[in-house]
Amino acid sequence: MEEKDLIVSAKLGDQLAFAMLFKNNYPFLVKYLIKITMNPDAAEELAQETMAKCVEKIGLFNGKSKFSSWLISIATNLYIDQKRKSKRERNWKAQEEVFRRMKWHLESRNEEWNDALSALGKLKDEIRIPIVLKHYYGYSYEEIGKMMNISSGTVKSRVHNGIMSVREELKLHGEQESAAAGTRSSR
């Protein structure tokens, strides 16, 4: 059964069609959420909430975009709303803990931690999310604007400023390393 047929059946209330749609898109959704939350547990939890919301809103899906794009737009708004409600604007300690775990996880798989990820994680959600959507998933500024309910101009400036911050952070890190190396060699 093709995705379009599954969507039609789901709109008519077919539970199995819904389940198949979710199963097919689950890895994509969770991987996207891992990138914006940097936390696999939170990503899985959020994915389940997104699917529940999707059941409620399926009548509003017009089929113009792909189902996966619609899912991540719901997930993005859900995540931003939850962050706003919890009022934990920048809980650095918790964020640090999340990064530490992620870093440990990657290093245990013999993968080197990428400093750009740390820099990306320090950005506000409103800036990090458009960067991920633009430069990893390849959505246009207009599409991201529609997903996040902001203008495409705002998306463009957020992406640009965000990348400039990451660039600065990477450069700073490089300077610190070379300074440290200089200190070591002078000893």
């Binding site: 992620m102 798989r109 993968e111 990428n114 400093d115 750009a116 990820l117 991920v132 990893y136 990477l170």
Partner: peptide, 13 residues
């Protein structure tokens, strides 16, 4: 750098 980092996340988590 960002793309590489995100790709690594995708492949290793």
């Amino acid at each position: 750098e960002i793309e590489d980092g995100l790709e690594m996340l995708d492949e290793n988590v």
